[in-house]
C-alpha cells in the first residue's frame, strides 16, 4: 500500500557532516504529523531536505513519485508548500506582493487562493499593503503560511509554527492548520520543540534526536510514554 508521502532512509549532509541519519517515515493523505525534537536535532534540516535544499541520500516520494533530483521550484510545483523557520519573507514588499510571489507556479488560481488565505487569516486582508519588515512575528508567520498556500499545495510543511509566538496566536495558527486539513484535505507535517502543542494538533508523532528517529507512534500511544514525558514535557 502506497502512502501519500514516503520518506525512505533519508540522510542529509552539510559538507562532510551528516546532520540526518537514515530517517524513514510515512504520512497518509489528510494526516497531520509532528516531528518533535530539541534545538539542533535536525528538524529544519529534515524539512529543507524535502524541499531539495540540502545534499541528501535516500528517497522521498510524493504519491509514488520521487522528488529526488527535482529542483526546489519543481518540488513546489509538484504540490509541496513550505513555511520555513525564519519565514524568509521579502521584507520590503507588501503582504500582498509576498503572497503574489508565492503564486509564481500557480498563476491561474491567484484569485481563488488569495480568497482562501485572506479568509483563513483576516488580518492579512487588513494589512494587505503593509511591508512585512514592519510586522510582528505572528503576522509574519501568517504571511509565511499564506505564501506557501498560494501554490495550492497538497502537502504543507511548517517548521516550528509557534516558536516565539504569544499563546493566543499559537491557538489561532493551530486552528488554521486544522481547518486546512478538514476543509481542503491538505496533508500537513510540522516540527515542534513543544510536545504539548504538537499533541493538540497532530495525530502521530516522530521524535528526532541528533538526526535520527528515536520514538514514533500515535498521540494516544505516546501520551503516557515515560521517555517522551521526561524529555519533552519537562519545561
Amino acid at each position: 500500500m502506497m502512502d501519500f508521502l514516503e520518506i525512505d532512509k533519508l540522510s542529509a549532509f552539510y559538507g562532510k557532516a551528516k546532520a540526518l541519519h537514515e530517517v524513514s517515515l510515512t504520512v497518509k493523505q489528510g494526516e497531520i504529523i509532528a516531528i518533535i525534537g530539541a534545538n539542533g536535532a535536525g528538524k529544519s534540516t529534515f524539512l529543507d531536505s524535502i524541499m531539495g535544499l540540502t545534499k541528501t541520500e535516500g528517497d522521498i516520494r510524493l504519491e509514488g513519485q520521487s522528488l529526488i533530483g527535482r529542483s526546489t521550484p519543481q518540488i513546489v510545483e509538484s504540490g509541496v508548500g513550505y513555511a520555513p523557520e525564519r519565514f524568509n519573507l521579502f521584507p520590503y514588499m507588501s503582504v500582498y506582493d509576498n503572497l503574489l510571489v508565492g503564486a509564481f507556479t500557480a498563476r491561474t488560481d491567484i484569485e481563488k487562493n488569495i480568497k482562501v488565505v485572506e479568509n483563513l487569516f483576516p488580518r492579512l486582508k487588513e494589512r494587505r499593503n503593509q511591508e512585512t519588515h514592519t510586522q510582528s512575528g505572528g503576522e509574519r508567520q501568517m504571511v509565511s503560511l499564506g505564501r506557501a498556500l498560494m501554490s495550492s499545495p497538497r502537502l504543507l510543511i511548517v517548521d516550528e509554527p509557534t516558536i516565539g509566538l504569544a499563546p493566543k496566536i499559537c491557538i489561532e495558527i493551530a486552528s488554521v492548520l486544522k481547518r486546512l486539513r478538514d476543509e481542503f484535505n491538505t496533508t500537513i507535517v510540522i516540527t515542534e520543540q513543544n510536545a504539548n502543542f504538537a499533541m493538540t494538533l497532530a495525530e502521530r508523532l516522530y521524535v528526532l534526536e541528533s538526526g535520527s528517529i528515536k520514538i514514533q507512534g500515535s498521540v494516544e500511544e505516546l501520551k503516557n510514554d515515560p521517555q517522551l514525558t521526561e524529555a519533552y514535557f519537562g519545561h
Binding site: T72, P73, V76, F90, P91, M93, V101
Partner: peptide
Amino acid sequence: GRAMMAVSMDTKGASISGVD
C-alpha cells in the same frame, strides 16, 4: 519582475515560492 525583487531580498524565500 516581482520574482526579481524577491530574489534580491531573500533567495531561499524566492526558491521555496517556486522561483527558479
